[in-house]
Design a protein around this nucleic acid. Structure first.
Length: 205
DNA sequence: CTCTAGATTACCT
DNA sequence: GGTAATCTAGAGT
C-alpha cells in the first residue's frame, strides 16, 4: 500500500527518447474502465528538438511538459486531442506522444465512443486513442501515477520493436524517434513525410 | 487584432 | 492517390 509505484513501469524521470520504447506494452487506463495497451509512441525533446512544442521555450500550452514526470500533457490539434506522458526531471521539457494502442479493457465503452470502427482500430491514431479513452484537454496536467481517473500501468514489453521517423512532422526527419510494436494491427498507418522515407530500423523489444 | 501552420481525421476521386 | 473540415496557440503587425 505504501508503495504505489508500479515496478513494471519504466523510470519516467529519464528523457523521453529513452522512455518511449519502454512504454510500449504499458497500459493507459481512463475513466469508464477503458484501458489501452500502447503499441505506438513518439519521443519529443525540448530545446534540441525543432519538432517539439517546447522547442521555443515554455508557453501557456506546453507548460506541463516542463513539469515533473508522470503528468499527462494534452493538447488540441485540428479539433482532436492528443496526449503525452511527461518525462524527465521538473524543468526539463521532454515527453512521449501516445499515438496508438489496443483496447484491453472496457471494450464496450470504447466501441460506444467509436461507432462503426473495428476493434483493432478503436485507438489507432493519437486523436482516436484519446477519444476511445475519453481523454480531453480537461485532463491536461493530471498525475498518471496518483491513482486518479487516468492512470498509467505497467505491462509486458513487446517481442520486437520497429523504429522510424515521426509521423506528420515536417522537421527533424532524420531522427527515428517513433517506436511501434512490430506487426501490431493497431499501429496507425499514416503517410510519413516524403523526406523521412527510408529511416526505418528494427531492434529487440 | 489578424494571420498562419499544425505531433489529425474522414471522406473524396 | 488527394483534400476539406476544424480550431487553437503562437507569432506577426
Amino acid at each position: 500500500m505504501s508503495a504505489p509505484e508500479d515496478p513494471a513501469l519504466p523510470d519516467l524521470t529519464r528523457r523521453g527518447l529513452v522512455v518511449a520504447p519502454e512504454l510500449l506494452g504499458c497500459v493507459l487506463w481512463a475513466g469508464g474502465g477503458v484501458g489501452v495497451r500502447l503499441v505506438e509512441v513518439e519521443a519529443y525533446e525540448g530545446a534540441d528538438d525543432p519538432a517539439s512544442h517546447a522547442w521555443r521555450g515554455r508557453t501557456r500550452r506546453n507548460a506541463v511538459m516542463f513539469g515533473p514526470a508522470g503528468r499527462l500533457y494534452v493538447y488540441q490539434l485540428h479539433g482532436h486531442a492528443c496526449c503525452n506522458v511527461v518525462c524527465g526531471p521538473a524543468g526539463i521539457a521532454t515527453a512521449v506522444l501516445l499515438r496508438a494502442g489496443e483496447v484491453v479493457s472496457g471494450l464496450d465503452q470504447a466501441r460506444a465512443r467509436r461507432p462503426g470502427v473495428r476493434d483493432a482500430w478503436l485507438a489507432r491514431g493519437p486523436g482516436n486513442l484519446t477519444r476511445a479513452l475519453g481523454i480531453t484537454p480537461a485532463d491536461n496536467g493530471v498525475d498518471l501515477l496518483a491513482g486518479g481517473r487516468v492512470r498509467l500501468l505497467g505491462g509486458g514489453r513487446p517481442d520486437a520493436v520497429d523504429a522510424g521517423p515521426r509521423v506528420n512532422v515536417s522537421r527533424a526527419h532524420d531522427r527515428p524517434w517513433r517506436f511501434v510494436e512490430a506487426g501490431s494491427p493497431s499501429v496507425s498507418a499514416f503517410k510519413i513525410h516524403a523526406a523521412a522515407r527510408g529511416v526505418i530500423s528494427r531492434g529487440p523489444g
